[in-house]
Design a protein around this nucleic acid. Structure first.
Lengths: 318, 318
DNA sequence: CTCGCCAGGTTTTACGTATAACTTCCGCCT
DNA sequence: AGGCGGAAGTTATACGTAAAACCTGGCGAG
């Protein structure tokens, strides 16, 4: 019976019988029991996606992309949002280990990741692990990254081209490789231009937090002419702070973001930002994991990003 | 061995032996095999959450709340975003049926729901189903609702109190009980006040869509003084349309939303809206499902909502 | 002193699947 | 005609757990 549905009955069962079996299965409404199948096969066709928080469009997009590819291959994707979202579920990774074929994890889920690493360190079992947005030299069977460095370079290029020289980097206060890259790349690109100035302010990723964090830097004569934000939410907070201190965007202050979330076009003026294809990111992550499971080489190369120029950037003092 | 870890070894195994077993299990790094356990017990401690799309903060919050309660009871939550997000995965519900203990479904996931209903109709197996935001008289073992009617009533009250009489209802063009309630309740509340006018415009739930849909209604002398939106995203679109036609908010036009998403405070002025506690919604949904599984009666009563008055509403012609 | 009972421990079975191993039957070649 | 090979079909086994069923030995009561 499993032969027929499994599809590999050539030379084992006659075509007529196969058809009879199919008819009978349909008649009785037969559905294979997943638990039994998983037990027998020793694999579950389920992967774990570890994300920092689901409450952001970005990771919702990553999930959607990963789930789409997964479904195409008969896989399912379960989520492991970081503990602060779910509460103190002790070691859900370890307890679910036998129910997983692999893991995809964002480097932004640092806390969850350390739990995983700890567990894997204790014992020998190596569950395939694909890291997203993470140091290629770091842990993980494979790494899939967005070409954030290129995005930051494009932002710097754009602002320099408009004539800006006094920059403020509104950085996400989250310890993650992807944010290190943004800071490093921005500094590197600006270092080549004489007469530029680059200051940095850190903020948690939220509109309110960014507004509070950046406000002081926008007051007084020493204020920058352009604010480069690690994220669209930080940019939205910058809008609010600018309004508070009486600065017009883009006339008095240029602002850029990264992500191209819905909020980027909800605010006025619409935000110049770097578009990240979250769904493609998820797809690539899942494809990489599938490749690892098949024993193949994962696709190489970072995922390209693109600068979307909107109304929040202009020449300084325009 | 399973006895000790199961916790019900009183009168079966001596305390000393239980301790020895525990020590040995820890030593060997023993982890129970989930597939085998599920097969043996005939239940999986996994529930399916059916949502229209994950790319919205709201359902991300619902998931977070549901997952939190689930984790506390040793349950996991897997997602079934509607097909358009995932692609044509045939009948994932049916195929995963044996791997589920129950289902929580939003009425907004109409397409996915019909698949579920169809499958359940064919056969006798009744998987516990908790409906969210849905007609209490409709299908489902239990129903958990937000008190949207009360929220709409508060919005109407607030605007009437400010002196508004000419209303536009920007309605979500999604066939769902929750949106029917909003329309019905708004009309009912306004029907009691002489001299009021209520028009309706429909729009898909997106900023761009709303901007295009509402723009025409804001031009000309016949324009309303207040726009009541089914959702914060629709409100954000209304902001953009208002700006296009040169209307100031709130001086020329009052706008209200529902949800209290991040976008509500990102836009300027901040949006007067009805706060829905998405996480609590998810928690209640999960608790109801757990109650059903335990054979108990689910908690009664709608979840209260609250009007958050911000800067987008004022007296007409202020 | 013997029987019975019960705490404490060991063996057995079933869950539903996938597949290896085994049986049966028929036709064809030598 | 005998046997041999392969197609078609049948039976057996293992996956790892939970729990029922089944042993065992010691102690108290009659």
């Amino acid at each position: 019976m499993s032969l027929v549905l499994g599809g590999k009955w050539k030379g084992r069962v006659s075509a007529a019988t196969a058809e009879r079996v199919r008819a009978a299965a349909a008649e009785l409404g037969y559905r294979p029991n997943l638990a039994a199948r998983n037990l027998r096969l020793g694999r579950t066709r389920t992967v774990l996606l570890v994300v920092p928080a689901l409450t952001t469009e970005f990771f919702a997009g990553v999930y959607t992309g990963a789930a789409r590819v997964a479904a195409r291959h008969g896989f399912g994707v379960v989520l492991y949002p970081s503990p602060e979202g779910i509460g103190p579920a002790r070691d859900p990774f370890a307890s679910a280990q036998s129910a997983l074929d692999g893991v995809i994890a964002s480097s932004m889920a640092a806390d969850a990741l350390s739990a995983i690493r700890g567990d894997r360190g204790d014992r020998g079992d190596q569950l395939p692990l694909v890291m997203l947005d993470s140091d290629p030299e770091g842990p993980g069977t494979a790494t899939v990254n967005l070409d954030i460095a290129d995005g930051v370079r494009q932002v710097a290029e754009h602002l320099l081209g408009l004539g800006h020289r006094d920059f403020l980097h509104l950085a996400a206060d989250v310890p993650s490789w992807t944010f290190e890259v943004r800071a490093r790349e921005l500094a590197a690109r600006l270092a080549g231009v004489p007469g530029t100035r680059l200051r940095t302010v850190r903020s948690p990723i939220s509109i309110k937090g960014a507004e509070a964090a950046v406000r002081g830097a926008l007051e007084g004569a020493e204020r920058p002419t352009a604010v480069v934000c690690d994220d669209d939410q930080l940019a939205a907070g910058t809008y609010k702070a600018a309004r508070r201190v009486g600065l017009r965007i883009p006339e008095d202050l240029s602002v850029t973001g990264i992500d191209d979330l819905a909020v980027a076009t909800a605010i006025d003026p619409e935000l110049t930002t770097v578009r990240l294809d979250a769904e493609l990111f998820g797809e690539r992550g899942m494809r990489a994991l599938l490749a690892v499971l098949e024993g193949e080489e994962p696709e190489e190369g970072d995922i390209p990003v693109s600068l979307v120029v909107r109304g929040s950037t202009a020449a300084p003092g325009a």
